[in-house]
Each structure stands twice: as structure tokens, then as C-alpha cells.
Design a protein around this nucleic acid. Structure first.
Lengths: 235, 235
DNA sequence: TATAATTGCGGCAGAAATGAGGTGGAAGAA
DNA sequence: TTCTTCCACCTCATTTCTGCCGCAATTATA
């Protein structure tokens, strides 16, 4: 078995050095990133086994980074943050983080929690294997890493909400998603927006998807229930 | 989807009450155990989705409990302990615990970490179970997750009420359901609609089901009583 | 026993209600 | 500015429900 690969995301060099030195003594391999954008890129390219993420990065909100990574990967994310408020913890954990450590942290505890995360990777890894960062269905392709969508290799521009909507449908291809479920997943709370807005987004999303795609219908309406992404079998 | 089942292992009644009250507000189901032996037994018998484990039990060392459970199960274990020493955390985590909270803990944080654990259970469950959640009877097939019905692999379009009706009959294949029972289950209240409406829906449902299905009768009428879905034995 | 009356079921059709999609524009953010 | 988000209004399609009719089975009556 190879050395476990850890991605350290931290803009404070002193802390990053401390962590990387510690990891070396434990015979882990590691990569470093000091910005949110760099973190997402590294997470994509080197596919680390675990991400150690500092929330206080200069260029991007930590929770945003978590959501970005979670949009295509389930790799364990351990947040290491100076913020110890409940709100910060809850929002990071709910965004998809697996653990949350507050600075100053004990090195032993960090290592122990790292082992917990790795245990899970190894365990999951045996059964699900590699996860791809793209989704394909018929002529449609979603590149999660780039956040782009293509129809027959032609890029189509989606707004953030449209993109989220499409990803949600894609993740659940073949299943009917209820209006409320979609609203909760995309907008956060079912009350934030209402079904009429959802309809508008569905309509524009459909138009964009099915414009250059000769007559193929990707999204099916279930009247009074919700929507469903069909699996396209091109034969 | 069932309520998540949480096992609370805690000998201090006050804390246990606080946790169980909190869980109830979140619509979780829970069981309680106050001793290590009881905890292991409950974990075995009721197969909870998550275990909340207090380390300071009178009859058994917490780490021992973790190891015992881990010897046969990977269910998530969140330790809730008054001990905040590194050594305690590391040994619990390395013994197989998934998370470690020190008392006094914030209820919000506990709930967030609980959600993290449940997320993982659900995810694993989807992967390994891959339960198709379909019903089959003769040439008819109901795909519950897709909300679709097929006759001889041809999709049949049903309106919401027709679909509910069919699911209800399917769930009770072979049993006679009275008019009132059906009205209550499908419409919510027996007074919302009356039997004449039910007749219309039954008729259209029958037509749709038995159209492409050469002469097979799925739904049987019991005059003056109700309806019944027959189990079809295709030979 | 034979016939008439009653009751319940299914078919059909049309009205009423609900929901979906289109469009335009206002408000807010980049 | 431009882009994005969201709301309001309109039209159209679907869904739901009701009423009426004929048929069949059961029950009552001569």
C-alpha cells in the first residue's frame, strides 16, 4: 500500500511547517496549498486521501471550499480553524466537513483524527474505488472540477443556481426529486424560495440543455411531485 | 425513510435526559443504556445508526466498549466524555471511535457531528445496499425511487392519485382494502372525497394497467366492500 | 317461480381546480 | 453597466371531481 497522501491547506507558514514536519515523521506524503483556489486545484489533481483545511484563507471562504470539493468528491476533510464558535463548526460540518479541530490543537489529537479519516478511506476505498470528477449522460457532460457543462462538447454557460440544480439532478439520475427536497438542497431552506422560482430555473436550464441537443429530453417533470433526470441511452 | 436510531450510552441521568430530549426535537429515535454491558447488548440487538458513548461508565472501560463493538460492527461511535486529556482522545479514537467530544459540549455541535456520522451511514448504505426499491407483480413493475410504473417494461403514465392508489394496493397485495381505508390513506381524510370518485380512479387505473397487459386482471372488485390487488403468477 | 325493485359498479363527459411553463421586468450584486 | 436572481402575471395543459346513464347482481314481491 502506498503512503497516504495528505493535502495541507494553510496560509500560515509556521503552522503548515509544523504539520508537514509532523506528517513526515509518521511516514505520510503531503502536498501544500496556501489559497482556496490552490486547494481546490490540488484536491482535484493529486486526489489526496485526506484534506486538512484551514478556514481562514485570504481568497475564499472555507465553507465554499468544502462545498466545492464536496460537489465532486467525498474525500475526508478535516477542518483546522482558529474560530471556535458553534456557528462556524456547524456550518463547516454541515457543508460536508468530516471533523473540526480548533487551534491551538494538539498534534497527537490531530494525528489520531487523521487516522480515523484514513481508516475510513481505506475502508470505503475497498468498495467504491476511484470517483470520477466528471459526469456523463447522453450528450451531456459535467466537469465538476472546472464547473463547466458541455453538450456534444460545446460548453454551455450556466448560472450558479442552474449549475447546482443540474448537479443535484445528475447525482440522483433516475430518481424523482421532490420540489421541497430540491429547494432545501439548492437554496438551503425550503422557505428561501418557492416552487414558482424553481419552475423558472428548471425552464431555463432545460432550454439551455436541450437547445443544441436534438430533441433529447434530459429532465422529466412529475406533475405535483418534482423533477427527475433521465438516464440517456444513446444507441 | 425511517428515523435514524441513536443509542445513548450515559450513566449520568441528567446528561442522558438532555441528549434524549434534544434528539426528540430533531425527530431521531433513540435507545438508552447506562452501563457498558447494556451498551454492548443494545448495540447488538437494536443495531443503531450511531452510538453516543460516555467513557466514564461504572462497570467497563470506555475503550473496551469501543473495541467490543468494533469487533463486529463499523457503526459510527461518537464519544462524549468529561476527560479532555490527549491520551484519552487518542486511545478512544485509535480504538475505533469516529469522533470525540468533551463535556461540557454544545448541543448544536453534537447535532452537527451526529449529522456527519449519519451522512456517512446513509452514504455507505446506498452504496452497499443498492436496494432497487421496486415492486413486481406479473408484468407490472413499480420503481418507487423513480416514481414510475411499467407494464412489460413499457412505462405507464399515472397521475399522483393513481400512483398513490396503486402503491397502496401493491403494498397490500392479496388483501382486500375497504373503501374507507383507501380514502383515508390516499386522500388523508375519509370525507375529503367519496366512493364515487374512488370508483372513477379505480376505473382509469385499471384501464391503464390492463391495456397493454393481455387480459390479466390486477385489481379485483369486492362489491360493497372495497378492492384488492391480486398476486399474479405467470406460468 | 317469475318478475320487479334496489343497490352498487363502471363508463363517459364536462366543469372546476390545480399546476406547469413563458415572459417581462424589478431589485440586487458583480 | 451587465448579469443574476426572483417575482408577478398570463396562458395552457393536466388533474381532479361530479353528475348522469346503463348494466349487472342481489333482494324483495307477486
Amino acid at each position: 500500500m502506498n503512503k497516504p497522501q495528505i493535502l495541507i491547506v494553510e496560509d500560515d507558514n509556521a503552522v503548515a511547517n509544523l504539520i508537514s514536519a509532523t506528517l513526515e515523521t509518521q511516514d505520510y506524503a503531503y502536498k501544500r496549498a496556501a489559497t482556496g483556489a490552490g486547494a481546490v486545484m490540488e484536491a482535484l489533481s493529486c486526489k489526496p486521501d485526506v484534506v486538512l483545511l484551514d478556514l481562514g484563507l485570504p481568497d475564499m471562504d472555507g465553507v465554499e471550499i468544502i462545498k466545492k470539493i464536496r460537489s465532486w468528491s467525498n474525500m475526508p476533510i478535516i477542518v483546522v480553524s482558529a474560530r471556535s464558535e458553534d456557528f462556524d463548526k456547524v456550518s463547516a460540518l454541515d457543508a460536508g466537513a468530516d471533523d473540526y479541530l480548533t487551534k491551538p490543537f494538539s498534534v497527537d489529537e490531530l494525528l489520531a483524527r487523521l487516522r480515523v479519516a484514513l481508516r475510513r478511506v481505506r475502508y470505503d476505498g475497498d468498495r467504491i474505488g476511484e470517483e470520477s470528477s466528471t459526469y456523463e449522460n447522453g450528450d451531456m457532460r459535467i466537469d465538476y472540477s472546472a464547473g463547466c457543462v458541455y453538450i456534444s462538447d460545446v460548453e454551455i454557460h450556466l448560472t450558479p443556481i442552474e449549475y447546482k440544480l443540474l448537479c443535484l439532478l445528475a447525482k440522483n439520475t433516475g430518481k424523482v426529486l421532490t420540489h421541497n427536497y430540491i429547494l432545501k438542497e439548492v437554496w438551503g431552506s425550503p422557505t428561501a424560495s418557492d416552487v414558482s422560482s424553481l419552475r423558472v430555473y428548471m425552464a431555463t436550464l432545460r432550454r439551455k440543455l436541450e437547445k443544441n441537443s436534438n430533441g433529447v429530453q434530459y429532465i422529466q417533470t412529475h406533475v405535483g411531485i418534482g423533477y427527475r433526470m433521465l438516464r440517456i441511452t444513446n444507441k
